[in-house]
Amino acid sequence: MPHDHHDHLSPSGHPYREDNDAPLSYWQTMEIAIREIMIEKGEFTAAEVNAQIEAMDARSPTNGAKVVARAWDEPDFKAALLADGSKATREMGFDIGPMNLVAVENTEDIHNVIVCTLCSCYPRNLLGLPPDWYKTREYRSRTVREPRKVLAEFGVELPETTTCRVHDSTADMRYIVLPARPKGTEGWSQQQLAELVTRDAMIGTGLAKDPG
């Protein structure tokens, strides 16, 4: 695999992948060629490509955390979110595109987890780009077969009595998990609550953080 270089860590603690300084690959050549042809043909501009990348970089799980915190705090909003996730999040100002967003709620008896067995469909408008493991064949293959075992690897041990629901995303149907609100957070502001909401909690491979 040409990109498996794990020798150096970036400031964010992730291994670098080769970019400008590695030998030009066939697929990189294709990317440059497609981009330039599209710009020459007036399909879009270089500035639009850059703006798209900036928007991509700006999206992060903090968007989803705001949605979750509001749902914990406002029963009406929670009902609206569970009834129509696309509409409720759009009204909060998140551009979620034409897809259907379905929020699934974790309760004391039910734990939800999301996967895309076909590729990597993910509520990226609320969570940013998916983590690498979400796109791996291991996660995609096994989550629908032995979800409890996969969750245990993420440190989530579900009691036998808890129902585990696995949601397989599609191109135009995306899921987000509404994690259970941690105990001991009564009276917290939405801002404080949002701090407890992790990316993995919204995928279902984690739980919201305990307060304190």
Binding site: Y16, R17, R35, Q52, I53, T117, W133, E138, V150, D168
Partner: peptide, 28 residues
């Protein structure tokens, strides 16, 4: 989906510029 596979790898990397551009080409 449903195939047997090993443990879920937890490597993470920052996307390279060319990868982000591919993503942008898809969206645009």
């Amino acid at each position: 989906g449903g195939d047997a596979a090993g443990p879920v790898p937890n490597d993470q990397h920052d996307f390279a510029l060319w990868e982000k551009r591919v993503d942008a080409l898809m969206i645009l």
